[in-house]
Each structure stands twice: as structure tokens, then as C-alpha cells.
Nucleic acid binder design. Structure first.
Length: 586
DNA sequence: GCCGTTTTCGGCCCGACTGTTTTCAGTCG
């Protein structure tokens, strides 16, 4: 089993245990274990087989989880999960997707009314049976009925680029409300996560009502879910939830830190605060009054001496921590890096000097060669590669050797007239279904830059598709594998390719791997890109542009690279042309 | 279930809001 498959098993166990009302810390241990396993940069099978290493060396993996991992690696199943599944029908777990229904209420519905599907839940609500249960009422019944509709589509997360457009629109709608000093979008959006579940807006103001009223007037708002003194949540027509939180200036940094998350990062932050006799919440960092705490006096969220809170940097500094870039706040490596003084200086968009994957009207691009070159110059690039499709991609009118050589002759001609940009003669050459490249070796040998990729036979077995890609990596003319797993976010799963084997082969043969910056792809993802970096495989961040505007997606790829902890040195196309040229080996 | 120059047992982050309550449980983030 892959790390991700093992992580999915642990997550599933956590869901089921939570439903059963198990010790919440035990549930957390499974969730935490799932995350650590899913993020781990090497296959656990490798760790397991290495006599010098222990699975329990991994943070968050103890004796019990280590045994379960061993079992999964050997048998690809976990009896404990099967027992839990036998105990709790899948339809009952589906109830948890209804907003407002948690494990306790779902369990009560199952126990008292034998409800085991969303359909039966709807029928019970409509018959007025639910409101008769203890702890339920008429209002709850109505909320559930409304929530059942949402449950179906509640799973879909919004791609970051789409969320970014909504954020921009909302920000301009909320701009200019009197009394608003600062306004920031926090949450997973700010962490640059590839998909975003909901949006969290944070406002620095003394009065909450004006900004809340303004949010309520946003044309895309379908309903207000909650509205209190400092917090408001609305649902947009699209189903996306938007949370608004209003705090005073002295709390803005603390609230920004808190609402940026991730949850796991914050658990760590607060745990560290506690060890120092401090308490961190969205209102600030406070020194805990020991006497009062021991007497069981709570005192509310503002109790104790205010230590920090105006800026995020102040909050972290109060805990002797650096102000982590939001992209790193996932409780992965960042605290260890901070302790060792090795927090990476993450790559920025301005570090990129070239773009090595783009198309023209010769195949399925919308702009001509000249237009793409002009657009690249306008963006100040030092070098680009023109990489149209090869002949196998017939739908895109892929290039055969003759048409390709004509294009290259044209590039030669154009290059002579350019003194501020180098245009590489490239090709996005298909890796054929049966293995091997889509163009003869003598043609590939004439290229400056060969991008290899899979477009057909994506459903092949793990072994088959891995062999194809490893074959391409062994080919002396291939420089890089483009969109290495083929996933399309929310649309298509990755191929079954063994990513670890691909990374190992790239390392062995001195090849590169792409972060495709198309917001639908972002492929490699953050975890795989970190794994590649760890093996010393250089990454290239490419636009895969099919138009001049398409060149501007690089920023999404940079965000993904930052989440992977990549520095400019890890990304090949940050190098000046003179250095990059060396890497071509031609 | 994990973890330890506060502990090998007893901790494990913290608060807002709602509905059904008459002091709080459940849910959410």
C-alpha cells in the first residue's frame, strides 16, 4: 500500500471511532497519524524494510500505529477497520455530511429512529419524528432538512485560483466600510492550499455591525447561517461558506494567526504556549494567572496579562518562534526547521527567469509563436521553451518530424533577432501506450529541450504506466516529465504511477520533474514535490500555457512549490540563462 | 493512541454560536 492509502485507512478509522464516541484524543491520534503518513516523503515500505530504522521514529507514530502500518503493508487490509465498518453502516456515516449533524446527533438518529441513510433522514424529518427526540427540536429538524440538500454537494472544494477570484470580488465589495482598518482573507486560502473549503475573512474594526451588514448585502449571498457579536457566516449561491470575524486592533495579529491555521499548526502553537505558562487564542497571547487557574477560575478568553496580539510576528515572537510563511503552517516540518534555524527562504514568483512548457497555434495553442515570444519578453523572461504536442496527440494536431523541424527552423530564425530572450527548440513528446517515445531518437536529439508526458493509456495498471514513465526517464534526450501524475483537481484522479519510483529514476538519470502551474493540475503536488526535493531532483515550474494569458498561471505553481518548502535553489528555472544552459547538457 | 529537562501516568488548544436548555451540550472552525 502507498502512504496515501494507509493514511486513508487511518482517517477512516478516525471517522468511525469519532462516531462511536471514542476518546477524542485517540481519534486525534489516528487523524494525526494519517496526516504524518500521508505527508511522509518516503514510502513507509522502505522504512519498514530498513533494519536500521523504525516506523516509531516517525513523529506521531507509536507502537500501535506502527503495528497497524506493518499489517497494512503486508496484507493491504486492517481487521480493526473492517470490524468498525461492520458495526456502523456506511449510510449512517453519510449523515455526518449534513451541516449541523455531528457524531452525537447522528448516533442518536441511528439509535432512536434506525436512520441509516440521507433518504430515511429526510423522510423522518418530513414526518416530524426528529423534533420529538431529546436534544432535538423543531428548529433542528428544519436545519437538517435544509442541510440534506447541501450534503450532496458539500464535498467539493474550490480550486485555489477560483477561490482567489471570489476573494478579490468580496474584498472589493467590502472595501470602504467606515471604521474598517484592516481586512485579510485567512484560512487555507492564505496558506495557498490547492483547494479551499470555505473562506475566512478577518477584519480589524471596533464596530462589527457595519461590515457584517455589508457582507450580507453581497449579491452572491444565498443565506446567513449565523451572526453573533464578532462572528458571521454566510453561504454563497455556489454553496461556498464565507466566515467573517471582527476583532479590535490589539487582537488582529492573533486572530490572523489563529484563522490562518492550519488547525494542527495551531494545536502545536498553543501547546508550546501552554508549556511556557501562556495562553494563545484569537484575542491575543496572555500570561496565565497560575493561582486563579488552579482554583478553577476561568476568567474568559481575555483573562491574564496581555502579552502580544497586534501582529502575527508579535504572537510568534512571544513563543520564540519565527513568523512562519502561511504556506508552511501545516505542522509538517516547520517547527523542527525553526528549532534548527533552518526555516527555508521560500521561492517567490520574481525568482523565476524562464518558462519551459508552452504551446502555439502549431498545435492546440491559441497564440502564434511570435505572439508567445512577445508575451514572454513583456514578462521579462530570460528564456522559454516552445513545447508543442507530438504527433500521437492527433486531436491537438500534434507535430510530426517534418512539421516540428519547420517550427524549429523558424525558432532558429527568430532567435537570431533576439538579444534579450533565448527561445529553446522544444517538444512535449508523448510517452506511447506501449512504451517508448512518440518521435524518433534522431529527431529528439535535435531538440534543445524535451518534455515527456502521458496523455493516453491513463487507466493502465501501476506497473504498466510506471514502466512507461521510467522508460522515458532513461531516454537520453528527455529532460523532464510534465504533469507527472496526470491528476486534474476535482475532475480526474492521478494515474496509478509509482511516484516514488519516478522520483528515484529522475534522481538516478539526472532528470527534472515539473510542477505544472495550471490551476487544474498543480502536478506535482506539494507532498510529492517535497519528496523530489529531498532526493535532489530539480523541479521546474511551468505554465503549460495555451495562450499568452496562460503564461500568468506561474504564480499558482509557485504557491504549490512554497507549500512544498522549496527555495529558489530547488527550482531549475530560477537560474540565470548561463547556468540553466549547463543543465541542458547539449 | 501518543508522548515526556514539568510527567512512563496523566495529560492532550481554545473559543463562538445555536438550540434546547434553566446551566449546557453539540457543532464548528
Amino acid at each position: 500500500m502507498t502512504n496515501r492509502e494507509i493514511a486513508a485507512v487511518f482517517d477512516h478509522v478516525a471517522d468511525l471511532l469519532e462516531f462511536k464516541g471514542a476518546n477524542p484524543f485517540r481519534v486525534r491520534a489516528y487523524r494525526n497519524g494519517a496526516r504524518k503518513v500521508g505527508d511522509y516523503p518516503e514510502p513507509l515500505a522502505v522504512v519498514s524494510e530498513d533494519p536500521n530504522r523504525q516506523l516509531t521514529d516517525i513523529d506521531g507514530i507509536g507502537k500501535d500505529l506502527a503495528e497497524k502500518i506493518e499489517h497494512l503493508l503486508t496484507f493491504s487490509r486492517l481487521p480493526m477497520l473492517e470490524e468498525l465498518q461492520a458495526e456502523i453502516p456506511a449510510g449512517v456515516m453519510a449523515l455526518l455530511r449534513v451541516p449541523g449533524l455531528g457524531p452525537k446527533k447522528a448516533a442518536a438518529l441511528h439509535k432512536e429512529l434506525q436512520i441509516d441513510s440521507l433518504d430515511r433522514l429526510q423522510a423522518a424529518c418530513e414526518a416530524g419524528e426528529v423534533q420529538k427526540l431529546k436534544g432535538f427540536g423543531k428548529k433542528t429538524e428544519e436545519t437538517i432538512l435544509k442541510g440534506i440538500e447541501l450534503a450532496a454537494k458539500a464535498d467539493e472544494r474550490t480550486r485555489w485560483a477560483d477561490a482567489d477570484a471570489i476573494v478579490a470580488d468580496l474584498k472589493s465589495h467590502l472595501a470602504g466600510v467606515p471604521g474598517v482598518r484592516q481586512l485579510e482573507a485567512a484560512g487555507s486560502y492564505r496558506r495557498g492550499k490547492e483547494t479551499v473549503g470555505d473562506l475566512d475573512f478577518l477584519v480589524d474594526a471596533d464596530e462589527a455591525a457595519p461590515i457584517m451588514d455589508r457582507l450580507g448585502e453581497y449579491p452572491g449571498v444565498a443565506e446567513t447561517i449565523v451572526r453573533g457579536d464578532t462572528k458571521m457566516s454566510v453561504r454563497l449561491d455556489t454553496g461556498m461558506q464565507v466566515d467573517l470575524r471582527v476583532v479590535p486592533a490589539r487582537s488582529f495579529g492573533a486572530a490572523l494567526q489563529y484563522f490562518t491555521g492550519s488547525k494542527e499548526h495551531n494545536v502545536e502553537v498553543r501547546g508550546r504556549a501552554k508549556a511556557r505558562g501562556l495562553r494563545v487564542n484569537e484575542w491575543g497571547v496572555f500570561r496565565v494567572d497560575k493561582d486563579k487557574a488552579e482554583n478553577g477560575e476561568d476568567g474568559g478568553p481575555l483573562a491574564g496579562e496581555y502579552v502580544a496580539g497586534e501582529s502575527e510576528a508579535d504572537v510568534y515572537a512571544a513563543l520564540d518562534l519565527p513568523c512562519f510563511p502561511p504556506e508552511l503552517r501545516e505542522a509538517r516540518q516547520e517547527f523542527r526547521w525553526a528549532e534548527q534555524g533552518e526555516l527555508p527562504r521560500l521561492i517567490e514568483l520574481a525568482d523565476l527567469r524562464g518558462d519551459l512548457h508552452m504551446h502555439t497555434t502549431a498545435t492546440d495553442g491559441k497564440a502564434t509563436l511570435d505572439e508567445m515570444i512577445a508575451a514572454a519578453r513583456q514578462r521579462g523572461y530570460e528564456y522559454i521553451a516552445i513545447t508543442d504536442h507530438s504527433q500521437r496527440v492527433s486531436m491537438a494536431r500534434g507535430l510530426d518530424p517534418e512539421r516540428l523541424r519547420r517550427q524549429w527552423a523558424e525558432i532558429d530564425r527568430v532567435n537570431k533577432q533576439l538579444d534579450d530572450l533565448v527561445v529553446l527548440k522544444g517538444i512535449e513528446c508523448d510517452i506511447l501506450e506501449r512504451g517508448g517515445m512518440d518521435l524518433p531518437d534522431d529527431v529528439l536529439a535535435e531538440a534543445d529541450w524535451v518534455v515527456a508526458s502521458v496523455h493516453y493509456g491513463q487507466q493502465q495498471s501501476r506497473e504498466q504506466i510506471t514502466d512507461r514513465i521510467l522508460g522515458a526517464l532513461e531516454h537520453p534526450c528527455v529532460n523532464v516529465i510534465a504533469h507527472p501524475t496526470g491528476r486534474l483537481i476535482n475532475r480526474r484522479e492521478a494515474y496509478a504511477v509509482d511516484v516514488e519510483a519516478m522520483i528515484a529514476a529522475a534522481a538516478e538519470h539526472g532528470k527534472l520533474l515539473e510542477i505544472n502551474a495550471n490551476p487544474m493540475r498543480l502536478d506535482l503536488d506539494d507532498v510529492h514535490a517535497a519528496a523530489a526535493q529531498r532526493r535532489g531532483v530539480p523541479i521546474v515550474i511551468n505554465s503549460d500555457a495555451h495562450s499568452t494569458a496562460g503564461l500568468d498561471v506561474l504564480r499558482y505553481g509557485v504557491l504549490q512549490a512554497r507549500r512544498a518548502g522549496l527555495t529558489a535553489a530547488d527550482v531549475a528555472n530560477t537560474r540565470p540563462w548561463a547556468e540553466f544552459k549547463e543543465l541542458l547538457g547539449r
